[in-house]
Design a protein around this nucleic acid. Structure first.
Length: 330
DNA sequence: GCGTCCAGGTCTACC
DNA sequence: GGTAGACCTGGACGC
């Protein structure tokens, strides 16, 4: 696991102090499907480690501090309980433990009740298939708004391999890592570090191209003060989107990626997948088809369209088999 | 090898 | 208000 990206002088800290926090969740909650999603998306950082149903990862809280996390299930899908060891370089105070507990609850989305979403399966065959395949998968969040903004910006106008390259370079060149429990976990750069870097450095060292200017600008705004994802969640969905779209470089698609309200973040790739599922064919111009597919999704699934979106993207293999489609190769 | 095209959006100038 | 064109980089493709 500890590969080349740790050999480049990345700032690394040893976290010797730990605390144990236990959580319950609203069932159904499948810990493994939630923290280690079938589509391969990470929970908090692409560098986290998942072994034998245990996840080692890192979490930056809005104060800027980075903590180590070790997570495992101590319950079942129907009686879900999660145990979390939190690691820090200092002893934990009572208030800090309470804040961390809230941040982990937010991240794992333990209290969301999906009853209405699962009820949709009675009248919607696609939702029925999805909830049969991935029962208990919960959408997750992060307390660190800047890491979501990095993800959104690097996903723009690039094949996934190129996005991975940009994200990996941002972490290795400007990120930091923490060592705890025998693991070393690298994490996204802070907004302050990116705001301090020059556009030229970001272009050259992270191959961000034209995105470098936008990311530096966004980092500056976040460093000066921007709502956390917990604060964006307390806003109405449209209000949260509008705040995000005030950031130069964050448009309709990126706002849906970042928003904790789980929008229908349709891009060219996912537009092809949903076109195949809904109409049986890929549109001639997928980009032009995006507004139409979004409209249909809102009419068909309402406020649960974000969940349909996530479930579909993590269920491509099963759906391909079920419907005789090749959704993994679009 | 080398040149060309284009991708998992966004912004801006122009009409 | 709507829309065409520019924008980094690197992989795929044709020659």
């Amino acid at each position: 696991m500890i590969g080349a990206r740790f050999d480049r002088g990345m700032k690394s800290r040893e976290l010797k102090h730990s605390a144990v926090l236990d959580f319950s969740a609203v069932p159904p909650y499948d810990f493994v499907l939630t923290v280690h999603k079938p589509g391969g998306w990470s929970l908090l950082t692409p560098e986290e480690v998942f072994e034998n149903e245990v996840l080692w990862t890192a979490m930056r809280v809005p104060t800027g501090e980075l903590f180590g996390l070790k997570l495992t299930s101590i319950g079942t899908v129907e009686k879900p309980r999660v145990r979390c060891w939190v690691y820090s370089d200092h002893k934990f105070g009572r208030v800090e433990k309470a804040n961390l507990s809230r941040a982990i609850n937010f991240t794992l989305n333990l209290k969301e009740d999906l009853k209405e979403f699962y009820a949709l399966s009675r009248r919607d065959s696609l939702v029925r298939a999805l909830t049969e395949d991935l029962c208990g998968l919960r959408n997750t969040k992060t307390p660190d708004v800047f890491s979501r903004l990095i993800l959104a910006v690097t996903l723009q106008m690039a094949p996934i391999s190129r996005s991975d390259q940009m994200m990996g370079l941002l972490i290795s060149e400007f990120g930091e890592s923490v060592r705890f429990d025998g693991k070393e976990i690298a994490y996204w750069p802070s907004a302050a570090i990116v705001a301090e870097a020059s556009v030229r450095e970001l272009e050259r060292r992270c191959k961000l191209g034209y995105r470098a200017k936008a990311l530096k600008g966004i980092a500056g705004v976040v460093r000066r003060g921007f709502p956390s994802l917990e604060e964006l969640e307390t806003m109405l969905p449209d209000e949260a989107r509008a705040r995000l779209m005030e950031l130069k470089g964050i448009g309709d698609y990126s706002a849906d990626i970042v928003s904790p309200h789980f929008g229908f973040a349709l891009d060219v790739w996912s537009a092809k997948i949903f076109s195949l599922l809904m109409f049986g064919k890929v549109p001639e111009n997928p980009r032009e088809a995006i507004p139409r597919i979004k409209r249909i999704a809102e009419e068909r699934w309402g406020k649960w369209r974000g969940y349909v979106f996530i479930y579909v993207l993590h269920d491509l293999k099963n759906l391909s088999r079920r419907y005789g489609l090749n959704l993994t190769e679009v």
